[in-house]
């Protein structure tokens, strides 16, 4: 009897969840600018995934030389012009998005769980030696300028996309630890946390089931905003030659190569730079929209 009752309850709960999703989307879509951000992000991701099919000259992504069409300005044939080797810049920018997106996803996948878990533990165990150890190490990493730290680390290793990703990770995790540490150390005094402790819940339960769900909104917002910033940092690394190596396309290398031909052949450097700007802007707009959506979601 209760079995069918339970089924029915679960079905109703599922409906409630889809309703919640609809309401969240409604809140998000009310802000036009964040919808623009979402569309831009989706466009960039789709372009990057289907780069070999959507770009006009897929061969130009790698080692390709055709000096006959070298350094041609923007035209109908080459919308963003070509570089000195005659490679289509639009094609190379879209292929460069692949590396940039792989890098930012990779960094976030590695950094967020690590930073969040350390922050939760340190925040929950505030006042113990564990907190001291975690937070002082975090402070040391925070004290170093992130770009300098990433430069130093990647200079120690062979310049590859993966290694520059690792280098960015080293300088990125402390920000998550700090953010979550601050939240966890105040959330642990909430009465619902006290109530679960008093009934005998384990520390992992309190940390991951009681405190973590209440940190999800800021984590999510920061992640979206960080995609843009990681791409920017990755471009800075590849600008100085650390990261994806030629002949593969990377936004930073394209700018540093093109900088030599400024101002005459301006398109070689300027268009990749605008591309970076557009990506960072897109993720920032999306992040702002998500922040507003989650903020009102909390308040209701």
């Amino acid at each position: 009897m209760t079995g069918t009752k339970g089924e029915e309850l679960r079905k109703r709960a599922k409906e409630k969840r889809s309703e919640r999703f609809r309401r969240a989307w409604y809140k998000f879509s009310r802000n036009r600018i964040s919808v623009v951000g979402l569309v831009m992000v989706l466009a960039i991701v789709l372009l990057a995934i289907f780069a070999p099919y959507v770009t006009p000259y897929p061969k130009h992504a790698g080692a390709f030389v055709d000096f006959m069409t070298g350094s041609v300005g923007p035209s109908l044939k080459h919308w963003l012009g070509t570089d000195v080797f005659g490679r289509d810049i639009l094609t190379r920018v879209i292929f460069a998005f692949r590396g940039a997106l792989i890098m930012s996803t990779g960094v976030l996948v590695l950094v967020v769980p690590l930073g969040v878990v350390l922050g939760l533990i340190a925040g929950y165990l505030k006042g113990t030696w564990i907190e001291t150890v975690i937070m002082r190490i975090t402070d040391v990493f925070l004290a170093l300028p992130p770009l300098i730290l990433a430069l130093a680390v990647s200079a120690l290793m062979r310049p590859t996309l993966f290694n520059s990703m690792m280098a960015v990770c080293v300088s990125w995790w402390p920000w998550y630890t700090r953010l979550i540490y601050g939240m966890a150390s105040s959330l642990r005094n909430e009465f619902y946390v006290k109530a679960s402790e008093l009934t005998g819940a384990s520390k992992p339960h309190v940390i991951f089931r009681e405190i973590l769900p209440n940190c999800i909104a800021p984590i999510f917002t920061k992640m979206t905003l960080d995609v843009g910033w990681v791409i920017l940092t990755g471009a800075s690394l590849s600008f100085v030659g650390l990261g994806e190596q030629p002949p593969k396309a990377a936004l930073g290398t394209m700018i540093s190569d093109g900088a030599k031909y400024l101002p005459a052949q301006w398109w070689i450097a300027v268009f990749p730079a605008i591309a970076i700007m557009v990506v960072v802007l897109a993720f920032n707009l999306l992040g702002d929209g998500i922040k507003d959506m989650l903020a009102t979601e909390e308040g209701s």
Binding site: E190, F191, Y192, V193, K194, A195, S196, L198, T199, G200, A201, S202, H205, R209, E210, P213, N214, I216, E298
Partner: peptide, 26 residues
């Protein structure tokens, strides 16, 4: 114990079922 304000003694991110299940599971 029952706390003063149920607005702060119940976790806003957990369903009532999850809240009530905790002492049972423990």
């Amino acid at each position: 114990m029952v706390f003063q304000d149920p607005g702060t003694s119940l976790n806003p991110q957990r369903t009532i079922g999850q809240i009530l299940a905790l002492p049972l599971k423990v």
